[in-house]
């Protein structure tokens, strides 16, 4: 299975209400955006990484591995800052800390995905006000990724059996060669979607306006406690940044 981030653990982060975690993610991302000083960004990143380890029981390596796709853009940032900014050493430091800010965004998002089951996550969004139809659409889309992946490999096998050589030719030829794969795939997806819509309607989807949930979520005392702590932290960071003026450096004069 691809695109499955969730890891089963028995941890505080896993057991919190998804709404708290979603708000926590937004607070984390906003906090990262408040500061541009390496003095604040570097500790903040380490703090996020460590809280994933301590509160979510996620291995450090396990967390960092998911950030691999960002490696290229991180390298670019770290290399370009010292080239365009003087003094160069400060440039390097800024490059590193802005990379960490970016990685921090990724890390927080992945922590949410690693500690929350897909259906809880979507339920959390719906409970926060996302229309149910949109939530369902999202679930279905994620659910069908592995299915479509399977269909795509069957189609590729079928066309290769008809002499299609996907790994041959220049870029333009290769792009043209995706047509025999894409068209059957699109047709198959549309058919599946159509059948799915009939299946949904035949189970009276949308018949009643107020939905109840078979598996519902509820805020418990520790969820409120966690939310309180999060908001207090956020307020303190706000105070630090705007009243005390910490964590902001003037980069361009």
């Amino acid at each position: 299975m691809i695109y499955q981030f969730y890891v089963e653990r028995d941890s505080l982060l896993h057991s919190l209400d998804p709404r708290v975690k979603i708000i926590g993610m937004l607070i984390g991302i906003t906090s990262l955006m408040l500061f541009n000083d390496p003095k604040a960004l570097i500790p903040l990143f380490l703090f996020i990484l460590l809280s994933g380890r301590v509160l979510g029981k996620l291995g450090i390596g396990e967390q960092l591995r998911l950030l691999k796709p960002l490696l290229f853009i991180v390298l670019l940032t770290v290399l370009i800052w010292p080239l365009v900014y003087k003094p160069r050493l400060i440039g390097l430091l800024l490059g590193v800390s802005f990379s960490l800010r970016l990685l921090g965004f990724g890390l927080i998002t992945f922590q949410l995905l690693m500690t929350t089951r897909q259906r809880e996550l979507i339920l959390g969004f719906v409970r926060l006000g996302l229309p149910y139809e949109l939530g369902l659409t999202l679930t279905i889309a994620l659910r069908y990724i592995p299915t479509l992946y399977g269909i795509a490999s069957t189609i590729m096998d079928a066309q290769r059996s008809r002499g299609l050589e996907l790994d041959r030719g220049n870029l333009l030829e290769r792009i043209r060669k995706t047509v025999p794969i894409l068209i059957p795939l699109i047709v198959a997806s549309l058919k599946t979607a159509h059948e799915l819509s009939i299946a949904l309607e035949s189970r009276a989807f949308g018949a009643s306006r107020r939905r109840t949930f078979y598996r519902d979520i509820s805020m418990k005392r520790r969820d409120y406690l966690a939310l309180g702590i999060l908001l207090t932290c956020f307020a303190s960071l706000f105070y630090l940044r705007f009243v005390l003026g910490f964590g902001h450096v003037v980069i361009y004069r």
């Binding site: 269909i151 069957t154 189609i155 096998d157 079928a158 066309q159 290769r160 059996s161 008809r162 002499g163 299609l164 050589e165 047509v179 025999p180 894409l182 068209i183 059957p184 047709v187 198959a188």
Partner: peptide, 22 residues
């Protein structure tokens, strides 16, 4: 040998014909 080379000798008709029509 590649699948393309072998396709001159062995033809494979997949279960769902629609998976090849484009």
């Amino acid at each position: 040998h590649t699948v393309a080379e072998l396709s001159r000798k062995v033809g494979y008709v997949f279960q769902n014909p629609e998976h090849m029509f484009f």
